[in-house]
Nucleic acid binder design. Structure first.
Lengths: 199, 199, 199, 199
DNA sequence: ATCTAACCGAGACGGTACGTCGCGTCTTTTG
DNA sequence: CAAAAGACGCGACGTACCGTCTCGGTTAGAT
């Protein structure tokens, strides 16, 4: 019998939205995801708490959108990976870049927090795959497809599986801190994966 | 100025400890990790909150030890994996078992929660690797070593890397819910990994 | 660095306020002042603890206001003492009434508690004098002033001092339980005081 | 059916007792009566908590005994008040001394605390009258008795009442902070009381 | 041009849990 | 066996946030 009050997005204040995103990002980098409260976000953004509760389900959702807004702002037309014709070299380049990125302490905290939330929140996981991981994976698969056509990867290879073999060990090692992330490690993963999917 | 009061473990009440473990496990399966409070654990265990704070750093630590106590209680002498001489068959058996295990909703919640905490808590991660993951990994590496001696795996293969290639994709797919966990998927990972590490 | 958050009295919930007063009075008479906790008051009143901490400095302050609310509710237009023209008779009447009042066990506990708090809390003492004792003392002084004009008390007598001589021995004897409080004792105090201040 | 375990006072450690007294007095002057805990006393005295609970009923009892020990230590053979033959002068001297004493901030806190406890604790009140107030009152009454014999005070005067008239206003004014304590005030009380009890 | 419905900031509210303090009891170890 | 040491169950503390709920004040779109 509940009268589902549904706010009208047309009337939404873009100014508040941006202020909330900004406050959220600042607070996360200042005190860490776990110590960020909705109260603090609202106070910092000069927004009422209700304005947050009206538009987001949870703190995780606010945080997610805050980062999404950032990444969308900086998004180039299309995500494109290098294609020199040499899949091994191209992949190693990309994987080494990922390794470097993961070493940046500024990215560390929010990405870890995001991953932790995703594990327990299916909705958030779906959004993550659709909005953040999806586009990047598409670009990677495009490059792999090109390699497939060039006969460098088995024609019947499942490209999702290729990506998992390449990246899952890397992510796991980073998330669990179970070993060092070196360029050599990246190279080894590329070599092994290509060997596994050799035609 | 703080005087670091350090409790004397010799005087610790084993009865309270066990009651806390039991209460923790029950509460987690009843209301889920996120909804378990230290207050509730203490109440259910008939213990004072201070008794928990005296011996554990955080809720995550209590939960971890609760499961650790369980696993140690049920631990067989030595962890041993089947060794029929056929590494492919043996690995597929084990991986399919893992897939089945992950489908059990009773294990799902606590394992997800544990993984989420591990991501953000280096201490907990270290303990996890040492106390829980470690013994299992040793057993798996023992089996892989046997296969290595039998010439089924390259002699120079890094066995940690073999395990990562085998399991990381599986774990990631499960944690991110990014795809179905089927026996065929398990088989495919074994096949690919063995191919990648073929002598 | 603390940001002194100051609540806005205009938005205060009168309903909560009254419920807290009621709960406080009930609890005091049920378990005694010392055994009343703010936690219990909040629970009984169906209020959050913060609602109490937001508006009162201490348990003593809540209790004080609770009684103040009572006394204000029951306050007759103006406090008036009998004036038959015979100051001695009038004072004896009033003092004997006080003696009787002090014998009532229902009033005993809270009044003792209030006096104990007042001793250690200057703010509370000031409030007590202003809100509770003040009006009563004014009425008494008015009657004494009338006696002064009638030449029954020295014209230069300090009326505050008269009241102290009359009441302080009575209060002290009651608070310290250092002797019986009888009508004769009341009469004696009146006689002595009048003699001391005879013109 | 409780087996009332009664400790044997003969075996009591005098060293602990003194250490507890010393710690109690120090803590009271450092943090104030209300903020002194039995835990803190035990810790400071290097005593076990049980040692305190074995020998005292309450914090108030420990504090009381601590001060009692002090006053007994410094007690001169017999308490004697000056007797110049002029009761008015002698009383004014003593009352002015009391006024001065009450102005000393070092004595203020503990005496206020003691009075607050006495109001709510009949046992403590009895002990106070017997051990602390008693001897002093006896001395004062001895002086008044001498004045009575000299015809300066009515022969049928109740000396307890004389003392109440003299001191109760002073104590009340101090405890309630309801007015200034000046030498003139002391003198006025003496004058009024002597007038009230003039033969 | 003026309603009027909605969002907005602000923040009080009933709650839950936090992590700490101290109580009074109990147990273990030391002299 | 008293005493020191201190762990224990317990209750309350005062604080931080939760998510809900008014309040006025502003700001649109519909009248």
């Amino acid at each position: 019998m509940s009268i589902a009050r549904k706010p009208n997005p047309a009337r939404r204040s873009e100014q508040s939205r941006q202020a909330i995103f900004k406050a959220t990002r600042e607070l996360i980098s200042e005190v860490g995801y776990a110590n960020v409260s909705i109260e603090a976000i609202a106070a910092r953004a000069g927004a009422g708490k209700q304005t947050i509760y009206r538009w987001w389900r949870s703190k995780a959702a606010v945080v997610f959108d805050s980062f999404l807004a950032l990444s969308e702002a900086g998004r180039q037309e299309e995500m494109m990976l290098p294609d020199t014709g040499d899949i091994e070299a191209d992949l190693k380049l990309v994987m080494r870049a990922t390794v470097t990125e993961f070493a940046d302490p500024d990215f560390e905290a929010p990405i870890r927090a995001l991953n932790a939330e995703i594990i327990n929140d299916p909705d958030l996981a779906a959004q993550y795959r659709e909005k953040l991981a999806g586009p990047v994976e598409e670009a990677k698969k495009a490059r792999l497809c090109s390699a497939q056509r060039a006969g460098q990867i088995a024609a019947d290879a499942d490209l999702d599986l290729v990506l998992e073999l390449l990246y899952a060990p890397l992510y796991q090692r980073w998330l669990h801190r179970s070993g060092p992330l070196t360029p050599e490690y990246a190279d080894a993963l590329v070599d092994l994966t290509l060997k596994a999917f050799r035609p």
